[in-house]
Design a binder for these strands. Structure first.
Lengths: 115, 115
DNA sequence: CAAATATACATAAATTTCTTATGTATAATA
DNA sequence: TATTATACATAAGAAATTTATGTATATTTG
């Protein structure tokens, strides 16, 4: 993807969440969806997306179905059962991450262990 | 740092924000502060921190002052003027990033260009 | 209708960022 | 006195991404 490096490390979570939400999607569709949702701010590059999809598949998190639409190839991906469980974990991690980042930038260090 | 890869790419922003807030800090202090704020969830490793500080300094975002406290060396870092401006940008990017990630995971794609 | 853009996949080289593993040194604690 | 805490540093390797290509078909535009 292309933008501030903050997005580094979030690609897999994004892919899995979109698949969880939409049932099945193909690569190009994912890039367009993300562009829409982020109003053009996040553009997933092919060089990042396809290897990520292949790895998620290799790890058993995704299943693939190849189809030909309008004489063009599409590879539809959907979450496996394992992938669904993993998605739940990743989304929980994302929530924690966001909370922590908000704590860090809101200058709210308090609420510490006090004896 | 050590955790879900979501934190990848956020180290510089964290460092700069903490320096903006605290005036000046030394490396070890930063690791402890982050640990406290995130309640132990985010542990910045030395192998990530020190190279990051050196790079920020090389890029003109940080100034260093070496001091000896209790017979131990400390390298205090503070933002340069350039660094302060850059920090504003990075924090804005972080806010956008968080918003975008929330849009992505909250399943709220709507509000698109409609003609 | 030719050229450019959009759709749709893929991979390889280089870069960036971080982890893991060390290393040095002093102070405090068990 | 051995371990843990404080405080710095760097180097090798891994992982994720960027950048640059490549192939192929469909659609739009000048």
């Amino acid at each position: 993807m292309k933008n501030s490096q903050l997005y580094k490390g979030s690609l897999n979570t994004i892919i899995m969440k979109l698949l969880e939400e939409n049932g099945r999607m193909y690569g190009y569709e994912i890039t367009q969806k993300v562009k829409l949702i982020t109003k053009g701010e996040l553009n997933i590059t092919e060089g990042a997306l396809y290897p990520a999809l292949h790895k998620l598949e290799a790890d058993g998190h995704l299943d693939v179905e190849v189809e030909r639409v309008d004489n063009r190839m599409r590879k539809y991906y959907k979450l496996t059962e394992t992938g669904e469980k993993e998605t739940v974990n990743r989304l929980a991690e994302l929530e924690e991450f966001i909370k922590n980042m908000q704590s860090l930038v809101s200058g709210a260090p308090k609420t510490d262990l006090q004896f």
